[in-house]
């Protein structure tokens, strides 16, 4: 009972989360000290059903945390393609950049998450946005030796 809505979201505890939110619906958009919402916590920990539940309750998927992290960048970094696709269907901004110059696509590439990369490219993610370190998604895939990601980017460019 002492868990915060953020912890409950991260753990996928939908029933307990629902109890809290039914009592106080402001908890749906409550940001923790770093600006993360329950939706961001659920997205970061791959809790697909919780993400869907929070969106159905009306959670705003476009909120950015203090350092401009988004639910989409967190899901992309973790390689949670189902969550990435769900968020994209809710028309989130696909090319947000954060303190790191990181975009969802750059995080998906960094994590070697091929399916995420394909989803993001299919939805029009910008291949030219570089991280603060100067790496474009392609540079990063090459530098890290992520050959399948590299191939996915090349296939996408050829299809343009």
């Amino acid at each position: 009972d002492s868990l915060s809505v953020h912890q409950l979201a991260a753990q996928g505890e939908i029933a307990k989360l629902d109890e809290h939110i039914c009592k106080d619906d402001s908890l749906l958009s409550k940001q923790d000290e770093r600006g993360f919402t329950p939706l961001m916590w659920a997205a970061a920990f791959g809790e697909v059903a919780t993400v869907t539940y929070l969106l159905e309750k009306g959670a705003d998927p476009r909120v950015l945390a203090r350092e401009r992290e988004s639910a989409l960048s967190l899901a992309s970094s973790g390689g949670y393609t189902d969550i990435v696709n769900t968020l994209l269907k809710h028309h989130v901004e696909i090319n947000t950049y954060d303190w790191n110059g990181g975009t969802p696509l750059l995080y998906a590439v960094r994590g070697n998450h091929v399916k995420c990369v394909e989803s993001l490219l299919g939805r029009g993610a910008d291949l030219t946005m570089e991280a603060d370190s100067g790496y474009s998604p392609m540079d990063l895939a090459v530098a890290l030796g992520h050959k399948k990601v590299q191939q996915a980017i090349e296939t996408h460019i050829l299809n343009l």
Binding site: R34, A44, F45, S77, N100, G102, L106, Y107, A131, Y135
Partner: peptide, 21 residues
């Protein structure tokens, strides 16, 4: 029983310790 708590979400640095290309 002790509660297991998740640590705050974080995103990795996009650097490799190499000069940017």
């Amino acid at each position: 029983t002790q509660l297991s708590l998740y640590t705050s979400p974080s995103l990795p640095n996009i650097t490799l310790g190499l000069p940017a290309t």
